[in-house]
Design a protein around this nucleic acid. Structure first.
Lengths: 208, 208
DNA sequence: GGGCGTATAGTCCACATGGACTAGTCGAGG
DNA sequence: CCTCGACTAGTCCATGTGGACTATACGCCC
C-alpha cells in the first residue's frame, strides 16, 4: 500500500469510488455512467485517464477485482468492487475537501459526493467553509486597496472583481444551503437512485 | 516548430508570455513576480512546472534566449525574450478563451490577461460569452427538471444548484463589466505598471 | 567568526493526463 | 450480402505536473 493513498486521490478517483458504492462494475460501465450523469461538468473524462485511475485505485487496494468475464470475443471485462479502505477513502476525501476554499474544482466534486456523509457532518464542514470564504472576502478587499495604491492599473484587476462577485454569490448560496440542511428541509442520507439511469442500465444489461 | 503551438499553450505558458511583454527576464524572476502578484490564485506555481513550461515555449520558438549570465558561482541565469510569434500567441490564446464557458480556470487566466487585447475586441468576445452562459443557464434548468422526473434524489443535485447560483452571479457581473467597457468608464489598453512591483524589483536589481 | 536559516537558481523523477489507436461486434442501408 | 458507421472495451505513448532535491551565497545573531 502506498503512503497516504487518500490525499493522493484525484477527483476522478473519488467519483469512481463513489460509483462503486452503488454496486460492482467494470471500467467501461463507469465511463458510460459518468457520461450519462453529466460528470463532465465536473471532471474531464477520457478513457486513458479512467483506466489509469482505476488501476491506481487497485494498486492502492481501495478497490479489488471480483471477476473477469468475457462476452464472445470482446476484450475482457474486469469487474471491480469497493474495499473497506476504499469506502473510508471517499468519506475522508470529501470531509477534507468540503471546507477547503483553494481548489474550487475539487470542491465541486466533494459537494456532488457530499451525500455520502451524514447531515450534521456536512453542516459542520460547510460552516467551516463559510468562515474561510468570509475571511478570504475580507483579505480580498484589502489586497484590492493595496494594489490600487501601488498604482496597479485597474484593467488588471478585473479578474479580481469577478472573483469577488462570485465569492459573494457563493456566500449567499451557502447560507441558504446550510439553513435548508439544518431545518431538515432538504432530504439527506445515502442516495437511493431508484429509477435512475444506473438502474435502468442494469436492467438493460440483464435483459440481454 | 510544433503543430499548433498556440492551442497547446497551458495557462502558465500564457502568463509567462504575458510577463515577457513587460521586459526580458530569466525564469526565476518569473517565479518571483508571479508569486508577488498572487498569480497562485489562478494557477499553481511550482519550479518544476515553470522551468518545463519555459523550455516548451522555447522549443515552440515563442521565446528566445538573449543571454546567459552568471553572478559569482551561482547557477547560470538564462534570460529570455518574447518573439513575434510569442507576442501573437498570447493575444490569440486570450481571444480564444474569453468566450469559452467550459474550462473556467482557463477563462480566469484569459480575463486577467485581457488587457493585452483592445477594448472593442474584449467587448465583442465577452458578449459572445454572455450568450453562451445564457444558453447554458436555460439548458441547466431543463436538465434539472428532467433529473427530478427521473427520480434522482435531491441531495445529488446540490452541486447543480450551486452552479446555477454562480452562473447567475456571473451573468450579472458580466453585464456590468460590458457596460463599463462600452461606456469607456473603465480605462483600457496595455497596462503601464508604473510604480508596480515589477519596476521596483528592477530598480532593486539595478542598485546592487 | 561559526553556524543556521533563508534566498537564489535550477534539476530530476515519479506520477497524472488525454488524445490516438486497436480490435472485435452489431445493426441498417444500398 | 457486404460494408460503413457506431458502439464496446481497452491499451499506448507523448506530454504535463509538482514535490523533492542540489548547491551556492547571503545575512545575522549569539
Amino acid at each position: 500500500m502506498k503512503k497516504d493513498a487518500v490525499s493522493r486521490l484525484t477527483p476522478m478517483g473519488v467519483m469512481v469510488l463513489a460509483l462503486l458504492r452503488e454496486g460492482d462494475m467494470h471500467p467501461y460501465e463507469m465511463v458510460r455512467l459518468l457520461r450519462a450523469r453529466r460528470a463532465e461538468r465536473l471532471i474531464s473524462i477520457t478513457n486513458g485517464t479512467l483506466y489509469h485511475t482505476v488501476s491506481r485505485l487497485h494498486e492502492a487496494a481501495l478497490i479489488e477485482e471480483v471477476g473477469i468475464d468475457r462476452e464472445g470475443n470482446r476484450p475482457e471485462r474486469t469487474t471491480y468492487s469497493l474495499t473497506e479502505a476504499g469506502h473510508d477513502a471517499v468519506v475522508s476525501w470529501v470531509r477534507r475537501q468540503l471546507p477547503r476554499i483553494d481548489r474550487p474544482a475539487d470542491f465541486r466534486v466533494a459537494l456532488a459526493e457530499a451525500h455520502n456523509l451524514d447531515r450534521r457532518d456536512v453542516i459542520e464542514l460547510l460552516r467551516e467553509r463559510h468562515a474561510s470564504l468570509w475571511a478570504d472576502h475580507g483579505g480580498h478587499r484589502d489586497d484590492l486597496l493595496v494594489a490600487k495604491n501601488k498604482g496597479v492599473p485597474e484593467q488588471v484587476l478585473v479578474e479580481f472583481d469577478r472573483q469577488e462577485a462570485l465569492l459573494d454569490a457563493e456566500l449567499r448560496w451557502l447560507d441558504s444551503l446550510i439553513i435548508r440542511l439544518d431545518t431538515e428541509d432538504l432530504p439527506w442520507g445515502p442516495a437511493a437512485f431508484q429509477n435512475s439511469d444506473r438502474y435502468r442500465a442494469q436492467r438493460k444489461a440483464a435483459q440481454q
